[in-house]
Nucleic acid binder design. Structure first.
Length: 234
DNA sequence: AACTACTGCAACCGCTACTTG
DNA sequence: TCAAGTAGCGGTTGCAGTAGT
């Protein structure tokens, strides 16, 4: 058998946190540190779910949080990172010290989305709104399937008419990469996660795959086109 | 002043990968 | 090995504050 449930939902508070609850949580974490969210509410004398405590601390109470408006630089960085990573808010937040994934997600949905739309850019694809979305197709002529970004019909797309992977995180197609199109095994070059400064991240593909990547300098970031096997199609 | 519509954000929900017993 | 719990993530919702009429 596993462990006992994380909390008794019948005896937990919900909704907005009170000042007293905040103070208790902050005092407890200052004394004991982060971690073991399951036992924290009881130990801290809070009628809250551990999950709720974790969220409150991470998104609101952490002392290193930067409150206030986003700067123009942060704006641009979020847009660049989103074009590369998609809705990976925690990864994006990792590149913005003092900002949380929830804060960035909210800011994206309320400000940046609108900003991009007003510029005629699709916030989901980072392409012009009037440009038809690319239809990825997969070729099996190599040892491994290769995703190509093309609207033209291929024999494969005819063979697999229902296969639409909705792949959107690669940078726009670039005929002439700024750097030598160095398509090598990852063992010899960085994956996108490492390139963005997230070594040892769970999304890092360096250590455990034989993925091929091509590196570009997209939007000023040393970006990477991933082999389709690394893409998440959520 | 009162009502309605809109906006922004904190918090919740549900899912998944990982861990534990 | 596997079932169940935990932590963390992303999507969604609820509500307070503000603007418009």
């Amino acid at each position: 058998m596993g462990r006992s449930p994380c909390c008794e939902k019948a005896h937990t508070n919900k909704g907005a946190w009170t000042k007293e609850e905040d103070d208790r949580l902050v005092a407890y974490i200052r004394a004991h540190g982060e971690g073991c969210w399951r036992s924290l509410p009881k130990a801290a004398g809070l009628l809250r779910c551990g999950k709720s405590c974790r969220l409150r601390w991470i998104n609101y109470l952490r002392p290193d949080l930067k409150r206030g408006n986003f700067t123009q630089e942060e704006d641009e960085l979020i847009i660049k990172l989103h074009s590369l990573l998609g809705n990976k808010w925690s990864l994006i937040a990792g590149r913005l010290p003092g900002r949380t994934d929830n804060e960035i997600k909210n800011y994206w949905n309320t400000h940046i989305r609108r900003k991009l739309l007003s510029r005629g850019i699709d916030p989901a694809t980072h392409r012009p709104l009037n440009e038809p979305p690319p239809t990825p197709s997969i070729s099996f002529k190599h040892d491994h399937p290769v995703v190509s970004d093309s609207n033209s019909k291929s024999p494969t797309s005819e063979r697999c008419p229902d296969l639409n992977l909705e792949l959107t995180i690669s940078p726009p197609h670039h005929d002439h990469p700024l750097h030598t199109p160095n398509t090598t095994a990852v063992n010899n070059s960085a994956c996108v996660v490492c390139t963005l400064g997230f070594p040892d991240n769970k999304d890092c593909s360096c250590a455990n795959t034989s993925t091929t990547v091509t590196r570009y300098d997209f939007l000023g970031l040393k970006s990477t086109v991933l082999d389709y096997r690394n893409l998440e199609t959520k």
